[in-house]
């Protein structure tokens, strides 16, 4: 059975090497500072945790922030963990690219750029991948083509929680 490392455990390991790098630790993930990302990822890959295999890289639009989620596995130790980075920048969110640490991130970062509009600095070939060059907007963002006053996603049942959107969305981006 793969051991699921809690975010606090990962945060503890990172803090021993980079004391300032961790922002938050939850059971599911450890949130790290974006400018320390490459150092932290290199440490996670080569350090005791041995996260040599990047399972998945994806972006989440939280409306007040963009998050990038990394799931990593150690094949030799059979354990798994997750880290996140986050920014409140909406117009042009920029994160460092981890392709130098895990080459397997190459296509996944292109996907996150294409659909969510996340710019990965240092990526060797950051272009649209599913959509064509010149496509207007970033379709996986919650405010894509949404009308003011409407909520993102499924039209909710009465009284259901959810954040209302402001503005016309990001088609002109």
């Amino acid at each position: 059975m793969t051991r699921l490392l809690a975010g606090q455990d990962i945060a503890h390991q990172i803090e021993q090497k980079y004391p300032e790098a961790v922002v938050d630790a939850q059971p599911e993930f450890a949130m790290v500072k974006a400018d320390k990302l490459i150092d932290v990822c290199t440490f996670l890959r080569d350090g005791d945790l041995d996260f040599k295999f990047l399972n998945s890289l994806t972006a989440v639009d939280r409306l007040d922030a963009f998050e990038i989620v990394y799931h990593m596995t150690s094949i030799s130790l059979n354990q798994m963990g997750s880290i996140k980075i986050s920014t409140s920048e909406r117009e042009k969110p920029v994160f460092p690219s981890v392709t130098s640490v895990w080459p397997g991130a190459h296509l996944q970062e292109r996907e996150a750029y294409d659909l969510m509009g996340i710019v990965f600095e240092g990526h060797p070939d950051l272009r649209r991948i599913f959509l064509w060059e010149g496509f207007a907007g970033w379709p996986l963002r919650k405010d894509y083509l949404n009308m003011p006053g409407h909520m993102a996603g499924l039209e909710r049942f009465p009284g259901e929680p959810g954040k209302k959107l402001e503005g016309r969305g990001n088609v002109d981006a």
Binding site: S56, T58, V60, G153, P161, G162
Partner: peptide, 26 residues
């Protein structure tokens, strides 16, 4: 892999597929 984020509603807030065919093309 499926990465799913829920906000407590009836639809997924985020639904991501970690597709092996796609990543095997890297």
């Amino acid at each position: 892999g499926f990465y799913i984020v829920s906000d407590g509603g009836i639809a997924p807030y985020r639904f991501h597929i970690r597709a092996p065919s796609f990543i095997n093309l890297t």
